[in-house]
Simulated assay, not measured.
Amino acid sequence: MENYKIENYTNPWGLYNNISKRLKLGHLVYDLLLKSIRLVDHELLGEILKSELVEPEKKSNFRIPVLTEEWLLKVFDFEDKFNAPNNMTVFTSKRNGLKIHKTRNGFFIAITVRENYSIMGMTGSHVSKPMILTVNELLDYVFLLKRDDVSFNERDIDKINRIISLH
C-alpha cells in the first residue's frame, strides 16, 4: 500500500502510471490493439497485471483518457444546463440525481468538502469540490455518494464503442 502524498491531490495523473492499481471489476479500459473500450473482468484484470509486471513494453490496455461531456450525455444519461451567474455547466443525472459541475478547470462533484487543519499553531480550513478525472472515477463516486452500482454488459460496451470516439 502506498502512502498518501500531497502530489496525489495536486497532480493526480501520476496515480495512473500503472492502471492495475486503480482498476476494479466493472471498470472500463481502452484496448489499444483492439482499438475499443473493454469491460474489466477477472480475465482482463489478470492480463493487465501480467503486462504491467512482466512485459511493460507490451502494455496494450490504458485508462480512458478523460471524462467528457460526451460520456455524461450519451453514456450516463445526464442533462446539461448552463449556469450563467457561476459560469459553469451543471450536469444532472436522470438516473440518480447526482450533480456534476463543469468549469474551465474540469469536472467536479457538486458537493463541498471542508477540511480543518492546524499547522505550526495556525488553524484554518480548506474548502474544495472533488475533481473527476476519468470515467472510472465517476463510477466510483456514483456508488460512493448515491449507492448506485452502474454496471455494463456486453451490449452496453458495443453501444459505447459505437458512440464514443477515442481514436
Score class of each variant (00 low, 15 high):
residue 1 M to Q: 08
residue 98 L to F: 02
residue 165 S to H: 14
residue 87 N to E: 11
residue 137 E to V: 01
residue 45 L to G: 00
residue 103 T to F: 13
residue 52 E to K: 07
residue 125 S to E: 13
residue 87 N to F: 14
residue 32 L to C: 08
residue 143 F to S: 02
residue 1 M to W: 04
residue 147 R to F: 13
residue 102 K to P: 01
residue 80 D to V: 04
residue 22 R to H: 06
residue 36 S to E: 15
residue 146 K to I: 00
residue 138 L to E: 01
residue 82 F to G: 03
residue 23 L to T: 00
residue 139 L to Q: 01
residue 33 L to T: 12
residue 2 E to F: 14
residue 119 I to W: 08
residue 143 F to I: 01
residue 153 N to W: 15
residue 152 F to G: 05
residue 73 L to K: 00
residue 97 G to I: 05
residue 73 L to N: 00
residue 61 N to A: 06
residue 105 N to S: 15
residue 33 L to K: 15
residue 129 K to Q: 12
residue 77 D to Q: 07
residue 78 F to I: 00
residue 4 Y to N: 04
residue 11 N to M: 09
residue 97 G to C: 11
residue 110 A to P: 06
residue 49 L to S: 01
residue 15 L to S: 02
residue 80 D to H: 08
residue 50 K to M: 04
residue 83 N to E: 10
residue 70 E to A: 10
residue 164 I to V: 08
residue 4 Y to H: 05
residue 98 L to N: 01
residue 85 P to L: 12
residue 66 V to L: 14
residue 66 V to A: 15
residue 80 D to Q: 14
residue 156 D to M: 14
residue 159 K to Q: 07
residue 143 F to Y: 13
residue 51 S to N: 03
residue 160 I to P: 13
residue 34 L to H: 12
residue 30 Y to K: 00
residue 20 S to H: 08
residue 71 W to G: 06
residue 37 I to R: 09
residue 101 H to G: 06
residue 5 K to Q: 09
residue 63 R to I: 03
residue 131 M to E: 13
residue 161 N to R: 13
residue 49 L to D: 00
residue 85 P to A: 11
residue 165 S to F: 15
residue 122 M to Y: 10
residue 154 E to N: 13
residue 46 G to I: 01
residue 84 A to L: 12
residue 114 R to E: 13
residue 52 E to S: 07
residue 79 E to L: 13
residue 124 G to K: 11
residue 14 G to Y: 07
residue 149 D to Y: 15
residue 60 S to T: 09
residue 67 L to G: 02
residue 38 R to G: 02
residue 94 K to D: 02
residue 131 M to C: 10
residue 4 Y to I: 08
residue 24 K to I: 01
residue 2 E to M: 09
residue 129 K to I: 01
residue 13 W to Q: 03
residue 127 V to R: 14
residue 105 N to D: 12
residue 133 L to I: 03
residue 67 L to K: 01
residue 120 M to I: 04
residue 124 G to W: 07
residue 22 R to P: 06
residue 115 E to H: 13
residue 113 V to D: 05
residue 146 K to H: 04
residue 44 L to V: 04
residue 52 E to D: 03
residue 8 N to V: 00
residue 14 G to T: 05
residue 128 S to G: 08
residue 14 G to M: 05
residue 13 W to L: 06
residue 54 V to W: 07
residue 41 D to E: 13
residue 19 I to R: 00
